[in-house]
Amino acid sequence: MGEQENPITLVEAVTQALAFELNNNSEVVVFGQDIGANGGVFRATEGLQERFGAARVLDTPLAETMIAGIAVGMATQGLRPVAEFQFMGFIYPGLDHILSHAARMRNRTRGRLSCPIVYRAPYGGGIHAPEHHSESTEAIFAHIPGLRVVVPSSPARAYGLLLAAIRDPDPVLFLEPKRIYRAAKQPVPDDGAALPLDRAFVLREGSDLTLVAWGASIKETLAAAEQLSADGIEAEVIDPATLKPLDIHTIIDSLEKTRRCVVVHEAARFAGLGAEIATQIQEYAFDLLDAPVQRVTGYDTVMPYYQLEAAYMPGVARILAGARAALSYSRSPPRPTNSANVVRNGEAQP
């Protein structure tokens, strides 16, 4: 337990959570491509096969439909499969099993069978990877009823949320922001304590502006908040962490203070999570708003090859521009619409 004091990276926190749960629950099995002796292409499963054996930490053949599908069969018989897709860009052959089976097994059997599966996938851009290795398509999955979509943004949240995901009785898509796999270290006690799913985290308090972001974008969002602070503007930074189901209440609570909101995501804008969050805000808190909700996102383009990648990604400057747009917005003074208003408002008109 002395290791507790050693700060670890996000990817090491993933490994630590997998090891904890493999050690504590014999129903947990971990499988995917190159996750055994190789420890995964990002080393997220480093040493697990050696420690827990090839019967519980398994290399699979190279077939994503299969990885998604066998997890369904395993889970219906009481196992807790944790399946790794090597990159989110290769998850789509498995979509049929995630959407048509894992997410609806409980419902279509009226609770007789269930799919406590964690589908893990590194996602997002910014690591100069080849084509298909950098997309952020969480909105596709967030649209699926019966599924949870969870994205950690720090080593501690990776550990606590992955434990919660494995223990959850329903399927979870666990998207790991690979750009920050090794971006920062923090001490993460290996105490097996899960963090709550379906709950947003307030990462920074502030009363002037609410910034909502998740995954790797948290890094730039917090940096933007610091710059705003230098200008005397205190931004509250909220990480929903569970994108589906979404904890809108924490965001609304923040808006009670700030009345202005910017949603940041790397994914394309159209029908992205920003649209859902902005819609829910206006449904629940229209009267709270002093400005339209701003979206700072990737463009509605194909994710570029890495030469143009940085231009695609929402960086600090784009977040600051969104923040300033939200902060500088002010409603035009209400125009009198009829004489009754004018009279009611006071002085007689000349």
Binding site: V29, A55, T65, M66, A68, G69, I70, A71, V72, G73, M74, A75, T76, Q77, G78, L79, P81, D96, H97, S100, H101, M105, R108, T109, L113
Partner: peptide, 25 residues
């Protein structure tokens, strides 16, 4: 413990493989 009838074609074959893994485990 039987799976529900499966309508998407051939998907149940992969489920059966996962089930078989669980039975072996």
């Amino acid at each position: 413990n039987d799976l529900p009838i499966c309508i998407p074609i051939a998907t149940q074959m992969l489920h059966a493989v996962g089930v078989a893994f669980a039975l072996k485990q």
